[in-house]
């Protein structure tokens, strides 16, 4: 973990209610895809945890949905403004378990952290399939980004406006060596039940500190109590208790 000041270089809307913010700063503490950062915002007491979408040599890319006071404030920020950011939080995904043909499954704001994961997996020469779920066509994010990495992308929308009509579980291909997923808990549970290959599931919880001190985000697992922020957010299929 590292606390440092980042400068916003870009902040724009990329889909309905969804924004992309690029920041420049010290990204050395970010060591795995699936980690998150915790951002301090003026006038708000608690930091806001946001997943890392991409990270390369001092450039951090966040894709977030404006859903509350914190993210709405972020959406209104301009290039040149600075943010106090804790980086390198959470365990992140374990790439060593990917096998040859990993499957990435993301829903809504659970999609962004899968981008850095897909990039790392593609750099390691894996054949990557990505299944993304959204409510409607205008909420689709990062589709072209995944395609540009050379991933096969399948889309599911609830209203059927793009791709398969329904949930991500209605668009799952067969034969994955391992799955990596991030999204709302009902989606994670549905994916868990619809699949049986090894898998890593990234969870969300309301956090106090984000670095393991407050015990605000604990959950019960097969291997004991875990803090989503520090021992997670990524849990192995075998340790999950629903």
């Amino acid at each position: 973990m590292k606390q440092s000041i980042f400068t916003i270089t870009e902040n724009r809307q990329i889909a309905a209610g969804t924004y992309e913010m690029c920041l420049r700063g010290d990204t050395a503490a970010i060591t795995a895809p699936g980690q998150f950062v915790n951002i301090r915002l003026d006038g708000l007491f608690l930091r806001r945890p946001i997943s890392v979408c991409n990270c390369t040599d001092g450039v951090l890319r966040l894709v977030y949905k404006a859903v509350g006071h914190g993210t709405e404030q972020m959406a209104a920020m301009r290039p040149g403004q600075t943010l106090d950011v804790l980086t390198g939080l959470g365990n992140g995904y374990d790439l060593s378990k990917a096998g040859d043909a990993p499957l990435l499954i993301g829903g809504g704001v659970g999609v962004p952290p899968l981008y850095l994961l897909a990039r790392k997996l593609r750099e390691a020469g894996k054949t990557v399939t990505v299944v993304l779920g959204f409510n409607r066509a205008d909420e689709i994010i990062l589709k072209e980004d995944f395609e540009a990495l050379g991933c096969t992308v399948r889309i599911a929308t609830l209203d059927g406006s793009v791709g398969v009509k329904g949930f991500v579980t209605d668009a799952l291909p067969q034969g994955a060596s391992c799955l990596y997923t991030c999204g709302p808990e009902p989606m994670l549970k549905a994916v868990y039940r619809a699949t049986d290959c090894p898998g890593q599931f990234s969870f969300e919880e309301r956090m106090g500190c984000g670095f393991g001190a407050c015990m605000g985000c604990s959950c019960k697992t097969v291997t004991g109590y875990k803090r989503i922020c520090t021992d997670g957010p990524v849990l192995e299929r075998e340790e999950i208790l629903w």
Binding site: L44, F45, E205, R206, M207, G208, C214, G216, C217, S218
Partner: peptide, 13 residues
């Protein structure tokens, strides 16, 4: 959980 809630100038746990 949830065990944490934000408040003006503070939090509840």
């Amino acid at each position: 959980t949830p065990r944490i809630a934000e408040c003006p100038a503070g939090m509840m746990n």
